[in-house]
Amino acid sequence: MEYFTISLFNGVVYGLLLFMVSAGLTLIFGMMGVLNFAHASFYMVGAYLAYSLQKIFGFWPAIVLAALLVGILGMVVEAFFLRRVHRYGHAHELLLTFGLAFIIAELVKLFYGNYPLNYRVPDALNFAAFQVFGTDYPVYRLLMGGISIGMFILIYLLLTRTRVGIVVRSAIYRPRMAEALGHNVPLVFMGVFGVGAALAGLAGAVAGAFYTTNPNMALELGVIVFVVVVVGGLGSLEGAMLASLLIGLISSFAVGIDLSLIDFFGLFGAREWAESVGGVLALKISSLSATIPFALMLLILLVRPSGLMGEKS
């Protein structure tokens, strides 16, 4: 029970963090059909900017400013880079974001050096919110979760309840039709890209203080955000939320499960045979916690490619 409760808490908060990063990615994909490989780089830039700004403005203003700046960066990327390449096809857009990810990572190293920075949770926030079975639960984790949930609600309402949201959604489904109706679709694209980037930047600014801020941040997050987006359904915000939580929980629970396929075969009395085969069968689930998300993604793609919540196939 103790293990279950703690894992549940941990998994949910980690999932919520994943959502913060992937929300922007899924929006951008839904709208522009671009798999943005530079998205995790926005996350990293958010953390680095927040680190620099907090020295001047303090922690909270720095986080907001960092998110805004990353949003502007995103808009610049969309307007001056992606839009130019758009007519050459999706592959070019994708490779462009690849190149940008390279450039951003190297520039970060150029300006901030190769080592982790001393960007930390401010002391005022570094205390335990409550105790679960004798383990402190840091208030900052709750905060991260709270920000993520707030973000989700805000975007959801924005998309479903406001006029802007209607235009955005129509631009997602039928960009040409929306344009024909007189909406400025390029502006909408730029806006969505900016908001998506800003969300990633916000996630980076918040999480960078809790985890580590280092030049490999983007790489570490890497493909897992793509997994979230695909599992949830490309372009679906609710799906991204669901998938994030799912993956957060899986990676949290898998750690404690020391079972392997041998145990599974043991149920049918084939333990000895399985042990003699070894190899894949002997792998413990706990050592595979990084593998499971990819297996899940593969399964989803083969069984239900539109993802858990996606509408388009």
């Binding site: 880079f81 390449v85 490779l95 462009l96 190149g99 390279f102 450039i103 190297e106």
Partner: peptide, 15 residues
């Protein structure tokens, strides 16, 4: 810094 140059080349070629 060669990775930076590489990135710049990618972006320039794509654009």
């Amino acid at each position: 810094n060669w990775l930076l140059y590489k990135g710049i080349i990618f972006v320039l070629v794509m654009m």
